[in-house]
Design a protein around this nucleic acid. Sequence first.
RNA 1: GCGGGUAUGCUGAAAUUGGUAGACAGGCCAGACUUAGGAUCUGGUGUCGCGAGGCGUGUGGGUUCGAGUCCCACUACCCGUACCA
Length: 947
Amino acid sequence: MEYNFREIEPRWQAQWVKDQTYKVEIDHKKPKYYVLDMFPYPSGAGLHVGHPLGYIASDIFSRYKRLCGFNVLHPMGYDAYGLPAEQYAIQTGQHPAITTDKNIARYREQLDRIGFCFDWSREVRTCDPGYYKWTQWAFAQMFEAYYDNDAQKAKPIADLVARFEANGSKGVNAACSVELDFTAEAWKAKTEVEKQQTLMNYRIAYLGETMVNWCPMLGTVLANDEVVNGVSERGGYPVEQKLMRQWCLRVSAYAQRLLDGLETIDWTYALKETQRNWIGRSEGTEAQFKVVPNDNPQTLTADGKPLEFTIFTTRADTMFGVTFMVLAPESEYVQMVTTSDHKAEVEAYLDKCKHKTELERQAGHEVTGVFSGAYAINPITGDEIPIWIAEYVLAGYGTGAIMAVPAHDSRDWAFAKHFNLPIIPLIEGDYDLNEGSFDAKEGIMKNSSNAELSLNGLCVKDSIQAMKEYVTRKGLGRVKVNYRLRDAIFSRQRYWGEPFPIYYKDGMPYVLPEECLPLQLPEVKNFKPTSTGEPPLGNAQVWAWDEANKKVVDKALIDNKTVFPLELCTMPGFAGSSAYYTRYTDPHNDEALVSHEANEYWDNVDLYLGGSEHATGHLIYSRFWNKFLKDWGVVKSEEPFKKLINQGMIQGSSRFALRLKGTQKYVSADIAAEYGECDPVHVDVNFVNGLEMDVEKFHQWTPEFKDVEVICNADGKFITTAAVEKMSKSKYNVVNPDDICERYGADTLRLYEMFLGPIEQSKPWDTAGIDGAFRFLKKFWNLYQTPTDAAPSADNLKSLHKLIKKVTGDIEQFSYNTAISAFMVAVNELTQQKCSSKAILEQLVVLIAPFAPHIAEELWHQLGNTTTVCDAQWPKCEEKYLVESTIKYPVQIGGKMRFTIDIPADATSDEVQAAVLAHPDAQKWIAGKTVRKFIFVPKKIVNLVVG
RNA sequence: GCGGGUAUGCUGAAAUUGGUAGACAGGCCAGACUUAGGAUCUGGUGUCGCGAGGCGUGUGGGUUCGAGUCCCACUACCCGUACCA
């Protein structure tokens, strides 16, 4: 019988569906194991061969774990909200839900052909109201929460209200936007709106007036991780800074926990390092600088004292070298210190900064700034130093103000040079301040003393410590930890996303009652912003909240007494993907995001597979979201993903036909030099075999190429050139998994993708190599054609158990490429041995089942089994079959391998030495020399040192 | 700048973690069977040399009986990040 994958694969796929082979339920008799793939955004282009790489890898591990007796959860779903469907809707009027459904259907069809063991009964879609009910719910919980820094935990906002009622802000150590100080009486005296405004300062989901990345072309704000190189990640449009009132999530409250959690999870060093940098913890000092009163009345406070502002520095040791101060253009202090005679100049500068796009800001790095006319007093030296305003100081980090130490900070140095400000060296050493600053955090201090403190002679590290103590003691400042991590901006001015369950009363947001969720996305006639510049939801007619009747009503009814306007923004892409892993564990629960029972059993993800591009987006947001849910008592684990593997990208291997410059003639690459200069033109890889192009198909490809002249080489072949590029439609290098399944079968596709190399590594796709995997499966199949009950030979057992050992170890390490080559070796050996023993074959088929499930299931049944191979038992390696009676030792003489010799495994060192020296080849190399040393490493090697 | 990663035949890669470099595949070459099909099977294939043998894992040093693997210095490429005080 021939290996007929075209018949076998669909038959078993249908059978698995019929038998619900991959459906899992809580089963307390078995240990759980949760394998998750990052769910895809269903794009219109469908899957190419790169997409399933991670899915195949996780599928193998899932099947392996199941064979080892685990109850394996392996779900799949869709990150279905997203910009492309909405952009398409704007262009064509096609509702994004329709596009999305169509794309999902296509994805599903493609995924189904590859034979994954997904439990589709647990599928989720982020755009499904039954799903986004819980995205909205989680947001509502965050709205009703604040972060208690002392407890390091989110708590109900009601607790905070109680504390305000009792003691005002005294004793409250909560994450907030601005430090507030008020008494219980002051709190009680506040109006409802004022109270709401105050609480907004503490809520984990809050409305904040913040600088955002505004993308005019997309008509929406973007998160930092959605802006790449100063332009939008989607579409590559310009992005500018704009102050807007936006929903934000107080991710920064969790900065320390996000950092600490990294120690407890099994992720790659590189990925953890990326997150550490993104969180950007830095320990430093905050210090107060007094402003010298000038003609700006705000330089004096209400009680007549000089205005002070706070700076943050990690180099407290350099305070003696501060020669000027710098404020960020957005700093509130700019208006408070600027003198009247500098006002015009300052205003002009601020205006210039404001209109710079993110791209211009990043590209330039030119030194710009303006003097405010004001001076501050260095608290350590008492010197008056000028206050400047410059865009190199960022409003969002630290306090938006710095003390400049030009001698030891390259940015301050560049600024000082440009504006001719003094530079005072503070560290001994061999450096030239005319050339640049000395930034290293090392060396011995000088020029650093006042009447009470001298750092001179101390090293940098000790000086920082000494200055911290001094500043704290003198009440000049405090030790402070700063994080680079910012709060996540959570509003998008778009249609295709989760609506916020929020309505506005007296301008303040209120959450819809929990029982009213989900708040369904309304229908709109137009997906563009409204004529008044409102987000697309402004086009919805039925979009107002009737508080009394608890329902969505026509916005014509808004009276701001019982009917109120609903929020017009929607949530960003990461909203729906932040807790999907936990929803899979209880996907149909209408009462809760996840039941305690389901969370207790399935817990968090044991193995997570996905691309490294999510390092600073999804993987931070989900960790944050999960920590919040843990504080809220919804889930039990602090971290969502225990182990994470980043699969590499499959790159495209593009092909180019060479076109003679300025003509429509195409010439084979090997003879192109004879014809003159050529331009490479992308041609579709699907009609190029290796480098040889099918000329006929080229002509048929598009009308453009129908009648062009093609010059072949002497053999009548047309040779193309090749290059590795990203796999994309525009480069005509996309290879579709359906085509591979059609030609070779899903098992071959799976095997080949894994055989290509280590999963984490990126590599170009080359269809040419797939024949090897296909041939292997045919050889594998042939082994099973005449199974017998014959007892296995020692060689059979050795080949099998060697394989069991290798494959088991390799799967545990996700080294699938080496596991597959071990299969190839074993099958070659067993074929050579003419092995037909069922005892061997039955175990062999279980071993390959995770990799090639269809052929395994077929052969498993052909061997007479009636239940699925998925529930077989993973074979155990018996060492007794592997023991060798003799070992082939390589013999090195003078450090070089000269020959091998067979020696009994139990030979003693002396016996080995005698045997080696007696060997004729040894004599050849030793002749005329003396053996100075004899090295024998049992089971490894023999080495003779001669001289 | 900073952080991370990679570098081995014509190609994808392997090397039990300090022990025969190139397993396993693809490609190519030769042959067999087929009366030319992108089928199957066998053998060969790092490089120089007729040969014995020499050389060979990005470069240069070092440690070791022995280095792709460890240490030091450097180069190239890829990814992330970007005035974070």
